[in-house]
């Protein structure tokens, strides 16, 4: 039983299913919520699901984290692939930046219009 749980393929499956679930939750949030905050948070959740999937897919049982510490000069077969980790780190940073910016906009928009409902944003569109 534990053997099965400890297999890489099984873990990958779990990660895939889990991240897909999170993805769906986020997606439903994006498409159904009316509150701008919630929409951006949902987008963040969708993104996170992708991060999870990517990192999870590269995890292999029995390999160490790819951290260059004392005495280790080189990435080799004992470590998991370092590239995804680096990529996700960068992506997370970008994601945070985007989220911060978007929330700033939302706050400013709310201050000016008193509105935070996406359906009531009618500033744009064809003039009649």
């Amino acid at each position: 039983m534990l053997e099965t749980l400890n297999q890489t393929t099984f873990l990958h499956t779990v990660v895939a299913i889990g991240s897909f679930t999170i993805f769906t939750i986020g997606l439903v949030g994006v498409l159904s919520k009316k509150n701008l905050f919630k929409i951006f948070l949902s987008l963040s959740i969708v993104e996170s699901s992708l991060f999870l999937f990517f990192i999870g897919s590269h995890f292999e049982v029995g390999k160490a984290a790819p951290i260059v510490a004392d005495g280790i000069k080189l990435f080799d077969g004992h470590m998991v692939d370092p590239v995804p980790q680096a990529m996700i780190l960068t992506t997370i940073v970008i994601g945070v930046a985007v989220l911060a910016l978007s929330l700033t906009f939302v706050v400013n928009y709310y201050r000016l219009s008193g509105n935070i409902d996406i359906d009531k944003m009618d500033e744009l569109g064809e003039v009649q």
């Binding site: 997606l27 994006v30 498409l31 929409i39 359906d119 944003m121 569109g125 064809e126």
Partner: peptide, 17 residues
Amino acid sequence: TQKLYTLSAQNMGLVIF
């Protein structure tokens, strides 16, 4: 067709998905 170009962001997301 103009109506399409005034979709809200959320409906836009729906269209994309």
